[in-house]
C-alpha cells in the first residue's frame, strides 16, 4: 500500500529535499485515484457484468477518505501547525483550498454512514446521500487543477477520467428517463371529459 511505501521512504530518507511536500502530494494523489477507482466500480459492473466488484466499493471509498484525511492532517500539522485562524482564512480566501476542504467535508457523512446499520436505517435515502461522492470527486479534481502552477499532465488526466466515469451515469440516466417516458401510458385525466 502507498502508506507502507511512504513510511518506508520517510525512514530511509527517500522523500527528497522537501519531505513534507512529497507526503502532501502523495496522499492527495492517492485520495483522488481511489475516489476515481471507487467511481469506476459501477460502470465496470454494468459493462462487464462482474457484479462481485461491488464488494470492494466500500473499502475503496473508505481508503479514499483515509488518504484525504491524511492529506488534510499534513496541511493542518506541517503547513499550518494548528494555526486555526490561518486555516480558516486560507479556506475562506484561497479557492483551491476551499475546493479541497469541500471535497473532504462531503466525504465525511459518506464515511460515517458506510456501516451496515446505517445502510439499513437510511434505506433508499442512503443511495441518494452517497451520490455526494460525485460532487466530492469534481471538487477534488478542481482542487488539483487550481493547485498547480501550469495545468498539464496529471490533473488533466484525472479530469478526463472523471468526465468519462460521470459521463456513463449521465448517459444511463438520460436513457432511463426516455425509456420511462415512452413506457408511461397516456393518462385519462388529460383527455377531455365527456
Amino acid at each position: 500500500m502507498p502508506t507502507a511505501w511512504l513510511v518506508w521512504a520517510a525512514f530511509t530518507d527517500h522523500l527528497g529535499a522537501n519531505p513534507a511536500e512529497t507526503l502532501q502530494l502523495q496522499t492527495g494523489r492517492w485520495a483522488l485515484r481511489l475516489l476515481l477507482v471507487t467511481l469506476a466500480i459501477t460502470p465496470l459492473r454494468r459493462l462487464t457484468g462482474w457484479n462481485d466488484a461491488v464488494r470492494f466499493r466500500r473499502m475503496l471509498g473508505l481508503f479514499a477518505f483515509y488518504y484525504a484525511t491524511l492529506h488534510f492532517l499534513i496541511y493542518l500539522v506541517l503547513d499550518q501547525y494548528f494555526d486555526w485562524r490561518a486555516i480558516v482564512k486560507d479556506i475562506a480566501k484561497r479557492p483551491f483550498i476551499t475546493m479541497g476542504f469541500t471535497a473532504l467535508m462531503l466525504l465525511v457523512p459518506l464515511a460515517l454512514t458506510s456501516t451496515k446499520g446505517w445502510i439499513r436505517r437510511l434505506g433508499r435515502r442512503w443511495q441518494t446521500l452517497h451520490r455526494l461522492i460525485y460532487v466530492s470527486a469534481v471538487c477534488a479534481v478542481i482542487h488539483f487543477i487550481w493547485k498547480v502552477k501550469v495545468v498539464i499532465g496529471e490533473p488533466v488526466l484525472y479530469a478526463g477520467i472523471l468526465t468519462v466515469l460521470l459521463g456513463f451515469r449521465v448517459i444511463w440516466w438520460l436513457r432511463r428517463r426516455t425509456v420511462r417516458r415512452v413506457a408511461r401510458p397516456v393518462r385519462p385525466s388529460n383527455l377531455p371529459v365527456h
Partner: peptide
C-alpha cells in the same frame, strides 16, 4: 495562491 507569511526551510517538515 500561496500564503507568503511563513516558509519551510528545507529539508524541514514544518512551514
Amino acid at each position: 495562491r500561496w500564503d507568503q507569511s511563513r516558509e519551510r526551510r528545507l529539508p524541514g517538515l514544518f512551514a
